[in-house]
Design a binder for these strands. Sequence first.
RNA 1: GCCCUUAUCGUCUAGCGGCCUAGGACGUUAGCUUCUCAGGCUAGAAACACGGGUUCGAAUCCCGUUAAGGGCACCA
Length: 463
Amino acid sequence: MVRTRIAPSPTGKDVHVGSISTGLMNYAWAKKNHGQFIIRIEDTDRTRLVPGGEKRMLETLEQIGLHADESPLIGGPYAPYRQSERLSTYKKHAEELVRKKMAYYCVCSPERLDRMRKEQQAKKQIPKYDRHCYHNQEEVKKLISQGEKYVIRLLIPDRKIVFNDLVRGKIEVDGKNLDDQVLLKSDGFPTYHLGVVVDDHLMGITHVIRGEEWLPSTPKHIVLYESFGWPLPLFAHVSLLRNPDKSKLSKRKNPVWASDYLEKGILPEALLNYLALMGWSHPQGKEIFSLDEYVSVFDIKDVQKTAPVFDPVKLEWLNGEYLRQMSISNLKFEILKFYNNKLPEDIVIKTIPLIQERIKKLSDYLPLCEFFFRSPDKYESDMSVSKEMFGQVFEELEKISDWKAGTIGESMQSLAKKLGIKNSQFFMNLRIAISGKKISPPLNESMEILGQKECLNRISKFK
RNA sequence: GCCCUUAUCGUCUAGCGGCCUAGGACGUUAGCUUCUCAGGCUAGAAACACGGGUUCGAAUCCCGUUAAGGGCACCA
């Protein structure tokens, strides 16, 4: 039975697109193998906790289509799925390791540790704990019994640690280069390393698919598994999403929250589809495919090792493709929803055929169609030169009894010819009078939708 | 500084020793369609980081160099 998970930390206002990216792979791998996908909240850093972050994160994951089989919201056989509610479990396991002499108490002050690190760096050595407390455990225990704050550190063995990564192959690290990692913090919370190993084991996680940022600490996790006497899960470290300058995707340089994209009118399906293309490609080279199709063709072994640059331009293109493939009623629904159901449905539905292939994201709709809902209050040209033309335009339009795009077009076409004005110039002036803008949906059709009265009204301003 | 990882068009990627004169997509350039902008269609420019091996043969395997990234916290 395959069980995968994502374990986000609620330290931001929403899910990070990087989490969605690895979440997607975890989800796909579980589903492809008829297993389970779990969401676990790792809220052990009390100092960086963002209020409401967890709720938002969970909601977005759901909205986007990455449905969990077990999570803090829906529960499951291994509940609780929130680390802050599992404190006694971690403590118990940390103590167990101390008893087995595979971990030890430490009461060193942050100041001492800091000083030590700096000295080591200056001497070009690997910064690591000097085991001062390890060699004085009896004394340390006495201090603790007197109320001294303490942490529990993992005793890293002095040997090579080797493991096979599903995407990177054989990884070998010398224990000499590893620090005696703190497992249990002095506030009683576990560090990531303890929490992740204990929970992944207890929750029966079979495949740990996570960001490559964890690759260097995986040997510590292996030591932990071995110290507990637990079987290892399979590890797959996938590359991190990058900024255009190749540094890891950060909010300084890029929008990183799912909501940043959703609020721009990027569809969840498009976002998922785009993210799927980061570090992986469809076996048939397809660029556009559903989540279900992705699940059926995804394979961890096809995941690339190189770190991809997140390209918002291609995301928008992809989103545009999704928008164009949508039915009119679905697109209408999405647009209305995007604008909080504040736009009149009857007009929106009429405008859709005119703009469907002109928008790349839902937020492109209003700038393009605003003039359908209200008369322009500013014009992208003063048009003082065209007064005479508009007088004639008004007369001709007034004459039309059958107010249809085709009729309007013919009428205006022949007027332009009669006046000896180039089509491009004539229609540009008319366009600005009607829409206020130099760029608009097709004019005749737009005028049909606006209606004869409204069009005459807008033109009368210029004659 | 030390440890780990990575290296194909600007970007995402295909390629897994001969099918490569390196394919596709985004973006970009030109043309056509046209009342603007999109869209569509056609054509084009654009890459195997470098140096050594191995081999009859290397983008593909090995070793170095260089570059990039990640990690080195009582953060995840």
